[in-house]
Amino acid sequence: MSVVASSPAAGRRPAPRSRLQRFLTSSIGLKLIMAFSGVFLSLFALGHMLGNLQAYQGAEALDAYGALLHKEPALLWGVRLGLLGLVGMHIFAYLALTRRNNTARPKGYRQRKWRESSYASRSMTLTGPLLLAFIVYHILHLTTGTVHPDYEEGAVYHNLVTGLGGVNGLIYIAAMAMLAFHLWHGVWSMMLTLGLPEGRYGSLGRTVATIFTILVTVGFATVPLAVLTGVLHL
């Protein structure tokens, strides 16, 4: 007889867990982790970009800046581990969210029309892993010098100019284009996730995201561009 499938039971709700567990497994909790780590990673990107601009003051200035950063190994490693942690959080949230999203619609539509989402928003799951690959390359290239044929410890300016010529420079510029997509949606999305926009949605958050993205990515991209065009040279 008639116990009915459609009779709602509270059965599908997850069992009670600790607050932390709940936060770490809930969709908004994961989003908040994504946004929180995103805020610091974005700020790091901004700082990194500003640091890079010292290349225009010449080798001395840049190398001195590099030396300054290495002055206190404890601090340096603290920051590095912190960044690693943030990237870890970002990746953890990405994996958890994406796994769930991939099962939420097992059968897709034959036809699809996008009305408001952007290419940037829909490509986050692509630009994210690609950026990760780029960062690994970048560290091996300009931090450890592992894949840099002409790497000199401590000679930041030299490494930069010799490392960003030719195809490498193009790779860096392409990566910045990717970063632009990622940041443009990411920064706006992060503000929304942190609950910032008041009233009717959109304009302010979008404007902030656009300005920030242009600032960071253009700032970054000028360096390889300057190397490629010979503005920066040994």
């Binding site: 459609s6 709602p8 509270a10």
Partner: peptide, 16 residues
């Protein structure tokens, strides 16, 4: 009504 359904006090039969 849904509050009572959630508490198990009402059995709701939709599409009936």
């Amino acid at each position: 009504l849904e509050r009572q359904v959630g508490l198990g006090a009402v059995k709701m039969y939709t599409r009936h």
